[in-house]
Write a protein that binds this DNA or RNA. Structure first.
Length: 428
RNA sequence: GGAGAGGUGGCCGAGCGGUUUAAGGCGCACGCUUGGAAAGCGUGUGUAGGCUUAACCCCUACCGAGGGUUCGAAUCCCUCCCUCUCCGCCA
């Protein structure tokens, strides 16, 4: 959530930046008005409360002095005030609720360093690593689902039988390769990041905290009988770990990583680039989250990008780094770099990590703060996150790139220790 | 799931309808004292919002959360959440 004072003290600038993020002008005006309306009400309501408090205090004092009649007289004058207050409070509640709902649905301000533009076509390729066009041009590569089915390590039919479309079932060495990937990602990041194993179901306010609710309600799974949501990413529990707390600056930055399952309804994306392991309702991921002070953000962002790139480099996969344009930067973030691995089987770039800066947008919602010293006021933490390794798509890339003419799949060297020394996957 | 106990400031802990403006203590900060320190004494010590916007003062809300009763609620009533103890169930 944005600081509402931005709409009062820095309105033109805020408007300019929100427009870059495709927010309609009248929506911005509406928010400003709601904030002003609320401010007007709060003074009136507070004044009435003060008056009632004062009279009640008088009643108590008069009773103790034995001045019963005077006390009764004041007592009778209060209900009228309370009626007025009740009406005002009712209106105030409406105005305040409207303000809140509007604010919760406004995206974060994009950083001015984001390229201009409103669609993914305007995203800028910052660099391409390990990719030679000539390696792929004019050649035909098998998609991972074919290779996987031939080797008996990937079974989409049974996954569909059990759970429906966009679920995966890995078998034998396929499952083992997946497990190796997770172990590998956790191992190489363990020096810098503290490993967390969080709950996978969270309260609604935690989903609110990362900006997932209320805007993206249709994309998350919720339980019918309990007021809990299945996390769409480890970002949700990690970013909210210190909700309601005030950390000391000496504890910063907090660098967390978590291996979690991620649950996504993927509403509206059925049928589109969903074959094989490209898009799943349930997938496994190692997530990296940083909580820090504002001046640490720049450095942490660079570290995060390099942490997210490292596994791709080590696995020898070709990938590129995108700088998302202002209009394509996600709801809660100010700046985003995407890592996309090249999938020769689908002849496309698959997003495997989205590294974002969220400023205090998420932490204001979750009320996660820090203090510079005993004398300083608490300030909101700043948060960042990115995938350390999104298992299914990396799995797909490894299978496609490691595919050998004899039908086997070569395991990248760095994964071999995590595969118990196994160097390739063959049909049994 | 059943029975019971409890949730009060950074921490401990009193208050169970009205000078509570939340006692007292610990911790912390500053000052006095001292050759220096400890002890002692004194002062201060939350968050958010409003007003001012340089600060103070003042006002409002906050005693797990949300409702209710009352002129007045930390205190009484209802619902929910969490923690602890015992029982039951269970990987």
């Amino acid at each position: 959530m944005l600081d509402q004072n931005l709409f009062i003290n820095d309105y033109e600038e805020t408007k300019r930046r929100l427009i870059r993020k495709k927010v309609a002008v009248d929506q911005i005006e509406e928010i400003r008005q709601a904030i002003l309306d609320r401010k007007a009400f709060i003074g009136e309501v507070d004044g009435l409360r003060a008056e009632i408090n004062e009279k009640s205090k008088q009643v108590g004092i008069l009773f103790q002095q034995g001045k019963k009649n005077e006390a009764e007289e004041i007592k009778l004058s209060v209900p009228k005030l309370k009626e007025v207050l009740a009406v005002k409070e009712e209106e105030f509640k409406k105005v305040d609720e409207k303000r809140m709902q509007l604010l919760l649905r406004v995206p974060n301000l994009p950083d001015d360093n984001c390229p201009d533009g409103f669609s993914e076509n305007c995203n800028m390729v910052l660099r391409v690593e390990g990719y030679e066009k000539s390696d792929y041009e004019g050649k035909k590569f098998k998609p991972h689902w074919e290779i996987g089915q031939d080797l008996g390590i990937f079974d989409p039919e049974r996954a569909a039988k059990l759970s429906g479309a966009m679920f995966a079932l890995l078998k034998g060495d396929g499952a083992r390769l997946h497990r190796a990937l997770i172990q590998f990602a956790l191992s190489i990041n363990s020096e810098r990041n503290e490993e967390i194993l969080p709950p996978h179901f969270v309260r609604p306010d935690m989903m609110m905290g990362t900006g997932t609710l209320p805007k993206f309600e249709e994309d998350a799974y919720r339980f019918r009988d309990d007021d809990l949501w299945a996390i769409p990413t480890g970002e949700v529990p990690l970013t909210n770990m210190h909700a309601g707390e005030i950390l000391s600056i000496e504890d910063l930055p907090k660098r967390y990583m978590a291996y979690t399952v991620c649950f996504r309804r993927e509403a509206g994306s059925a049928g589109k680039d969903t074959r094989g392991m490209q898009r799943l309702h349930e997938f496994h991921k190692v997530e990296l989250v940083r909580l820090c002070s504002p001046e640490m953000v720049k450095g942490e962002f660079e570290l995060l990008v390099s942490d997210a790139e490292r596994p791709l480099k080590m696995l020898g996969l070709p990938y590129r780094v995108l700088d998302l344009c202002g209009g394509d930067v996600t709801f809660s973030s100010t700046r985003v770099h995407d890592l996309e691995v090249y999938s020769p089987g689908t002849e496309s770039w698959l997003e495997v990590s989205s590294i974002g800066i969220f400023s205090d947008f998420q932490t204001r919602r979750g009320n996660s703060r820090f203090r510079r010293s005993d004398k300083d006021k608490p300030e909101f933490l700043h948060s960042l996150n990115g995938s350390g390794l999104a298992a299914p798509r990396v799995w797909a890339a490894i299978v496609e790139h490691g595919y050998q003419p004899d039908g086997s799949v070569r395991i990248p060297e760095v994964l071999v220790p995590f595969m118990g020394g196994q160097t390739e996957i063959r049909s049994p």
